[in-house]
């Protein structure tokens, strides 16, 4: 059988982001899976959850990863988030927000819901941004999973995902209640199928 080694992902041309763009994208990721603030001056994370969220799990590393296919566009999307937060009639008008991160969590959530809704013709882009921010928390695709499981602050650990063996493979030697728990369908044939 032919065998292929694991090729390296292409990692050239990581996008550069301004401080403000980073802040907007972190606030977006924190809206998808909210977390606790990283410090007293952390205003990108809304702080509505007591435990680490998507930002802590590495959302910006995932969004900047060239494998996603959206890394070229995230700076522009960050700018758009801030523009929408300031737009007349938009999410931030009432309190004159200067940027997306200035919005409280509920307002951030309402704007993200609007951007990813079926009614938005540009929802594909926002869905992908949301998907990769989400995946940072629940699967951390920017890192090998066995390594992620050694970090207590990641989403996989918070979800109760089990630990691998020392070789990085998962095994569950005991996996069954090992008793009959229902009658099988009376028409079941010798191969275990219905006729």
């Amino acid at each position: 059988m032919g065998r292929s080694s694991v090729p390296d992902m292409a990692t050239e041309d990581l996008p550069t982001l301004t401080v403000q763009q980073t802040r907007a994208l972190e606030a977006f990721a924190d809206t998808i899976i909210p977390g606790c603030k990283r410090g007293a001056d952390d205003d990108a994370v809304a702080g509505v959850s007591a435990t680490p969220g998507a930002v802590h799990a590495g959302a910006l590393d995932v969004l900047r990863h060239p494998a996603t296919g959206i890394s070229d566009g995230i700076a522009e999307m960050a700018d758009t988030l801030d523009t929408l937060a300031r737009a007349p009639g938009g999410a931030g008008e009432a309190d004159q927000a200067r940027s997306f991160a200035d919005l409280p969590y509920e307002r951030r959530r309402a704007l993200v819901a609007e951007l990813t809704s079926r009614a938005n013709p540009e929802r594909d882009f926002w869905f992908l941004l949301a998907l990769f921010a989400y995946m940072a928390y629940d699967s951390s695709p920017h890192r090998p999973t066995a390594e992620v499981m050694r970090d207590a602050g990641t989403g996989l650990r918070a979800m109760g995902f089990g630990r691998p063996d020392d070789d990085g493979l998962w095994r569950f030697p005991v996996a069954s209640y090992a008793r009959e728990l229902a009658a099988v369908h009376p028409q079941t044939d010798e191969n275990g199928n219905l006729p």
């Binding site: 008793r179 369908h185 275990g192």
Partner: peptide, 29 residues
């Protein structure tokens, strides 16, 4: 076809709940 000792906890739970509701449940070939 498989016996019940080859059925995962998740499959066993589904079978037990079906049984409780008066339904059958089959280990999948």
């Amino acid at each position: 076809r498989h016996d019940w000792d080859e059925v995962s906890y998740a499959g066993g739970l589904w079978a037990a709940m079906c049984d409780h509701a008066g339904h059958t449940a089959n280990p999948l070939p």
